[in-house]
Design a binder for these strands. Sequence first.
DNA 1: CGGCTTTGACCCGCGC
DNA 2: GCGCGGGTCAAAGCCG
Length: 504
Amino acid sequence: MSTPSTGISFDSDRITSDHRHHHQLEFMDSTRHNRSSSSHSPPPTTIHFPVNYLDPDPYKSDDKRINEVDFFNDTKHYPSKSIDFDLNCKEEITKPAIDLDFNVNTRLNLLTGNTSSDQSVIDDGISPSYEDKRANHELVSAQAKLKRMNGENQRLREALNQVIYNYNALENHLAMMIHQKQRGENPNGEGSRRQVMDLALTHPAKAETDKNLQLSTSEERNNDEQSMRPILNNQNTGNIDQSSEAPIRKARVSVRARSEASVIADGCQWRKYGQKIAKGNPCPRAYYRCTMAAGCLVRKQVQRCAQDRSILITTYEGNHNHPLPPAAMAMASTTSSAAGMLLSGSMPSSDGYLGRNLLPFSSSMATISASAPFPTITLDLTQTQNPLQFQEPFSNPNHLPHIFGQSLYNHSKFSGLQMSENMEASSRPGQLLPPAALTDTVTALTADPNFTAALAAAISSIIGGAAGGSRGNNNEENVNTTTINNNGHGNDKVSNSGFQGNYQ
DNA sequence: CGGCTTTGACCCGCGC
DNA sequence: GCGCGGGTCAAAGCCG
């Protein structure tokens, strides 16, 4: 646990069962809605990329009434290592603020007391008083530097959170304007309700525009992409009357987590408004809508996996139009970022470039389904250990914060930040991209501004939400630019009280 | 009594 | 046009 390292990493993985929240979902045996037939759609083509996940131990039996998985409960503390960022996020009324609590081990073994056992015994001829003065000077200097860094880091984080918040507000304002425009043109409002909903749930207009522009440049499109052509035509002609558009696509982010809980505690308040038996799965699908603010259009579906009913599948849709509590922001920013990448084309279609390059990670990670009715990115958190994951000490099911950031977080690995530092990991067969593929992927990703934005949000999520950031999971091998000792173990760190993050 | 869940009915898109 | 399936509505009931 206390492996010496200068690494900076971010707290990541923790899932705990939590019964504080009362939203429950009864997966009944009802078959009244079951109209399933024997026909099945072909499995969607997929793109995979890694998500790190640690099993939350859903069978934890401390409490007889485990109804949720709380991804954000953070009560554990970890011994600090070299440089540990203890990120506390306090909730404000309108936006999250962050308190930073740095705990830096300067490795100078600076002592202000006279604990002889720790003092140097080497007689170098320098007087003790000189040593003390020098040590004190260094200590003061380090403290001053730390203070500056602390302030700067907090400012940056606040700025980043503000940007994310403004972005979400603007996005929802756009949806609202479109809604009003539609109502103005269609006073009855009938027949367009669902379309309005879809519009509001659809990811940013710019992302759609980008995607559509990409579509216009190629003749080789699959059927799924062809469905977007009406949108493209409208935009090209300057017609923004989307009420006349044909299929509006909305991105979904699906999270697969192994849990006996009924729902995952993602920090938001949800109200169940429906339940149905979907074709091909005897487990009912429950529909929830966000009730944290009037008019919030975010919805989620919760369903157990037919093949493995210990797996809970939660699918999010849409962006919140209201400030989120810190506990909710991790999921929000992650799903938003994933959806943005999906719709913006940063994550190309299943036969796309990135997909080929990322396929080596396919076994246990995230999946993009391009052939589904809606573009869906699935974060598979059911794997106890993914191919990139080191054996590490934080596989405690209670220490699973922020797993939702992992998908995007791992994407950052491909952005070429630390390619030269993959030596250890690359020694494990099949765990890293071939150099050429990696380079290509890096080029593709970094060339895409949407990826940059998404990555920023994801990093924000990780930094802001990781409740002290570094539980040092698998990711530090690549991302940590200061790592000297990449032994694959998580940076032990002092955790803190609040999990924060960002999501929508 | 208000908020939430349950659940049958309904709407709508899509494929045949 | 029809049936299927996904998604939503809304009345009724439940619960604190």
